[in-house]
Structure formats: C-alpha cells, structure tokens
Computed example of a mutant assay.
Amino acid sequence: MLAQGSGLTVGAVRESFPGEQRVAIVPAAVKTFAKSGLQTVVEAGAGQAAGYPDEQYAAQDASVEQDRAAVFAAADVLLQVRGGGGNPQFLDADLELLRPGQVLIGAYDPLSDPKSIARLAERGVSCFALEFLPRITRAQSMDILSSMATIAGYKAGLLAAAALPRMFPMMMTAAGTITPARVLVIGAGVAGLQAIATTRRLGAVVSGYDLRPAVREEVESLGAQFVELPLESGEAAESGGYAREKDEEFYRKQQELMHRVVAESDVVISTAVVPGAKAPVLITPEMVEAMAAGSVIVDLAAERGGNCALTKPGETTTHGGVTIIGETNLPSLIPYHASQMFANNVASFLQALLNEEGQLEINLEDEVIRETLVCRDGQVIHPRMRERLGLAPLESK
C-alpha cells in the first residue's frame, strides 16, 4: 500500500497494447521521483517483460499494486508508453478509470486519432502528448520520439543482418574473398542515422538518401555515401523540426529516380514518416522485383502503412525472393533499454511541471509545456487538435 504523505503520486500500469513490452517507469526513476518528494505506484508485472521485476521497484520503495484500477486511483500523474489514440483497442477501459484533474504524460498519437484526445478531455484530465514536444535544445532530454527512433534504427540494422542470407562485412578467407553487403538507408533522421551507424559497424557498404541536402555531412560522417537524386528538395520539414508531406507528383518522380539505387542494394531500410499521415510510398513493386533474390527490406514506416507498397504491417513477407519486414513496434523488441530511455524522457518532462515545493504547476508561458498540453479542464486546447476536430480556436486570454 502507498505510504501516507502530502507529496504527489506518480504511477504506471502494465501496458495493454498488444505485444507492447515497454514500461513508462523503471526502478531507477523511482529514486529520481523520491528526490522531488513524489511517491511511486506501479502495477504488479508492469516492468516484467522489459526486464524489471516487481522486486526492483519495491527495493526503491515504490508501491506495487496487484489491481490495475488501484494504480489509476492512486496516481495523480499517470505515465504511459501508449495511451489515447496510441492504444485505441483499450481506450474505453482506460477512460473509465480516469478522474478529473489527473495528469497524463506519454505518447498518445494525437494527430492520427484526434477524437481520442476529445474523449480524454471529456474525462477532465490534463494530457501531455510528448509527440508535440518542440525540437529545441532544452527539450532534448524529454524527446521520446528521438529516443525510440534511435532504438528502432539500431534494431532495423540487426533485423536486416539476420534476414540477409549473406554476411555484411568484406572478408578475405582461405575459402575466397567475401564481398560486403550493400545497404541503402532512406531517410537520415534519427532512426536513419542510427541504421546507417549500425550497418556500418557490421561491415556493410552503406548509402544514405534524404530529401534534405543539409544532412549530407551527417551521413558522410558515419562513413556512408550520400545518394543524390536530381529533385527540387530543400528542407522537407515544417516549423518544429517535423517532416511534412509532399505532393504526389514529387513522390512519383522520386520513385523513378530511386529505382536503380534500390535495385542495386542488398538491403533497404526505409524510415520516412510524416506525423499523423500515411507514410509516403517510396518503394514500388517494380523496385522490389528489380532487387536480387535474397535481398531484404526493413520498413520502419510499417505502422503508418509502409514506405514499401508491398509491406504488410506487423508481418514479414516475401515477394520474388525479397524479404519485406513490416515490424510495427521495433522499440518494444529491445524493451529493457527502450524503457530506460522512455522513462528518463518522461521523468525529465515531469520535472519541468514541478515547482520548488514539488507540486504540479502548469505554466503555459513555458514553450515545452504549452506545446505538449492537448487537453485540460474538460476541453481540447491544443490549436492543431482543435483544427483537426473542426473546433473554433480558443480565445487568447
């Protein structure tokens, strides 16, 4: 049971999204919370799949509750890996357990499912969707998207190496010389750069492609060749540092130019996603058919429909001898460190919400807090969410 005290209680439950192995609080975070005067409550087994048994939480003086509803009831602040639109199958069950005034922090996929944010607002909670975190220096320690993209890029490289029926590095052996595998990484964001770094460490010859010429230096600094296609590109990002959509004609021309590059690759790792939108199709069936049998495509955009036209989200399939991996939750495949990184991000964000007395203080003058707060006091307040829901802008106070 929770000890009695005047401090706030922060909690996490076992994630209910199918196959999700991460947890939003790791034992080390309990100590961090205690230093700020916070108590911690977790559902029994919440960290088990990630490698954090209940005993480790109890050793840090966290309360471990057998009843999921008891955690919801005790927590003033609930931390979630997947909530709201990020876990639509179990949204109804969570809504019943929420109470007015409760604070939610985590990933809620607001752009894909704005109605879920409206439903959270109806419960009277204050919800912070960290997908909206501004890309500023002060927010880097809170950036769940970058943390999880790092994990995804790393795991994508390992999956490709495991699926490819040849070795990545060049080797000179008594049995002859083995030529290195050729890897193409599409997209040089956090996930793409990590995929480049991982496949390079494994010994492959790696090329990286991105619409933004400015990332050429980053790609080449990792030992990869930057692929240039004669397209009008510029910076493919909107304010805030997130990718934006291009028109169909742009993607058609891009596909034509990319055909040869894809066909020459043994492995293609695609990472192009646009928040809240279907992923652009960059790899056509004709490109897949031009690849050699045994080649591998790892589609990090599978959850958004996929960059490859033949990707089946959540499945690994083959087409003409080419393996297409459509895993939709790569961070969950490395749950120990993914949970550690996620927990550090949300703990850092929570610290920004606390005043010197350890009490919650939602300061809308703070850009980090203002940009991530999607609902409060019974209404959706984030401008982008209101626009998606067809609601009139709120009057400025």
Rank of each mutant, 00 (worst) to 15 (best):
E238A: 13
P180D: 08
A214N: 10
Q48L: 10
H259E: 07
I325M: 04
E365V: 09
A191W: 05
D92C: 02
L159A: 06
P53K: 02
L78R: 10
S116V: 10
E15A: 09
P53C: 05
V30N: 04
Q39C: 06
S116Y: 05
R135N: 13
Y108E: 03
D94P: 03
L211Q: 12
A12W: 00
L159E: 03
G240I: 00
K397E: 14
A175D: 15
L353Y: 10
C375F: 12
L394C: 13
T9S: 03
G11T: 01
A3Q: 13
A243G: 09
F90V: 14
F17M: 10
I186V: 15
A347F: 10
E43L: 00
L2G: 01
I144K: 01
Q102F: 07
T173D: 06
T317G: 06
E361A: 15
A204H: 07
L8S: 04
L300E: 00
C308T: 05
A392R: 13
R370V: 01
P180E: 09
E361F: 14
V281N: 02
R260V: 13
E356W: 12
E248K: 07
V26T: 12
E249L: 11
L120V: 11
V215H: 05
G208Y: 07
L350V: 04
G378L: 07
P114T: 09
A69S: 15
G157N: 08
L133C: 03
G153F: 10
L78I: 06
G390C: 03
R119G: 03
K278I: 07
Q340Y: 14
S63N: 05
T271Q: 01
G157Q: 06
G187R: 03
I334L: 14
A338D: 10
T284G: 05
R244D: 03
V268C: 04
I105N: 04
P230V: 00
A224K: 01
P313C: 03
E357G: 11
L130E: 11
G5M: 02
V296W: 03
G203N: 01
G320Q: 07
K246W: 10
I136T: 13
L97F: 04
D377L: 09
V205H: 13
R135D: 14
Y52C: 07
L333W: 05
S339Q: 01
L2Q: 05
A59Y: 11
